[in-house]
Design a protein around this nucleic acid. Structure first.
Lengths: 218, 218
DNA sequence: CAGCTCATGTGACGAGCGCTAACATGGCGC
DNA sequence: GCGCCATGTTAGCGCTCGTCACATGAGCTG
């Protein structure tokens, strides 16, 4: 049905690709997104990028190395999304904090490929220094938000900010991992994952003594 | 160093193995435990069991089918461990509840192979009816515990037990997945995963209005 | 502009795995 | 004692990972 072309778009290129590395990462993201982190295949990414199966090895030591690179980029995007949601705690820390929680789930929901590479692909955090650094930066954002919230408490009973950040991350990740995906494999819920996390966070903050008196319902 | 035997134990068997299915599951558990759910290989499990690489297909449709079977057994063990820890809420629901949380992490820590198969191997919950049923039974245990705790609250402000159970599971899974393994890939913490979860749960219960006044420190 | 060099891409290959098909064995019910 | 069929075996296809030796041409150098 197509004249002169049977493949959609091999924009004519010479022997050298130009920026194969970027294209491989994009291909990997697409594959992880549609077939899960295990279905992803080094050879297929090469095929998508229009190069021979051996070419990727010029840019990544092996399959795990590519996965680690994708995960690191994911953490960078993640950190940016969280920082944008937190917005330095404006207009007030409680409001900003709830935005943060929603942003976490939004990321997990809208970028399943990144989220899979980051948390479900079995990539060790120290697979590369860049990955470790990217993950640390993302966590630091959460920790800063926790500190701002804790500062609202009377000086007597302030929990450690690190611990609070770990709690927030744990609950967010738990909700996202167990109920945050629409991939059909999981349990049907009477509420959305976002509502579940929001309610959980409200209860947790209440337990800390942060009476978020402003009603957060829409 | 060994006389008359170079392989540890092929207890002489005839053409038929006897209970290959069980042996395959045990082999799979061992492999998942030492090489992660991705490193696990159908062929290698067959080798461990001392049969040809095609034999396992007489007992499991494919690799995922075996994984689902392992996960289902894991949920059964898991449910039993939780039930034992909860012990019908004795001597009182708060104490039993903290035992429950510790049991969750103990399971994740002591049975990493089961836990991986259940939550990290990417097995869809409805891969088999048995798996779905086993997972449901385990969750029902958590839900029953939540109900018992909620019953302690004044009738006015009782949250839905289902929601509370989901919160508990989410936080537990989050802590276990992010910090519960000693596999070196994760973040070093100033406290143990068990302490982290215990503190988080105390804060959460406090937020619900459950003043667990009895000090839970050792 | 000529020539060199080295990063990048290619083709061929070995090993290992998932899974299927056709064949072998022997435990168990008749 | 016989024969069936569940359970095992061997052979083989198609695929992936990862490594070779080799080809190409982009960009520096003079």
């Amino acid at each position: 049905m197509s004249w002169k072309r049977d493949k959609p778009e091999p924009p004519p290129r010479g022997y050298h690709h130009g920026n194969l590395k970027e294209e491989l990462v994009r291909a990997a993201l697409g594959l992880i997104g549609e077939k899960g982190p295990n279905g992803f295949t080094f050879a297929e990414a090469a095929r998508l990028a229009g190069v021979s199966p051996a070419a990727p090895y010029r840019h990544f030591r092996d399959r795990d190395d590519l996965l680690a690179d994708v995960a690191a980029r994911g953490f960078a995007v993640f950190e940016a999304a969280l920082a944008r949601a937190w917005d330095q705690g404006r207009p007030d820390p409680e409001t900003a904090f709830h935005r943060l929680g929603r942003a976490y789930l939004t990321f997990a929901h809208d970028e399943p490929a990144y989220y899979s590479a980051m948390f479900e692909a079995g990539v060790a955090l120290d697979a590369s220094p860049e990955l470790r650094a990217a993950a640390d930066r993302a966590f630091l954002g959460l920790r800063a938000a926790s500190e701002a919230l804790i500062a609202l408490l009377p000086a007597g009973n302030r929990p450690p900010a690190l611990m609070m950040a770990l709690h927030v991350w744990s609950m967010s990740h738990g909700v996202a991992a167990l109920f945050g995906r629409a991939d059909g494999g999981r349990r049907p819920l009477p509420m959305s994952a976002a509502e579940l996390l929001e309610a959980g966070m409200l209860i947790y903050l209440q337990g800390l003594g942060l009476n978020s008196t402003k009603d957060a319902s829409p």
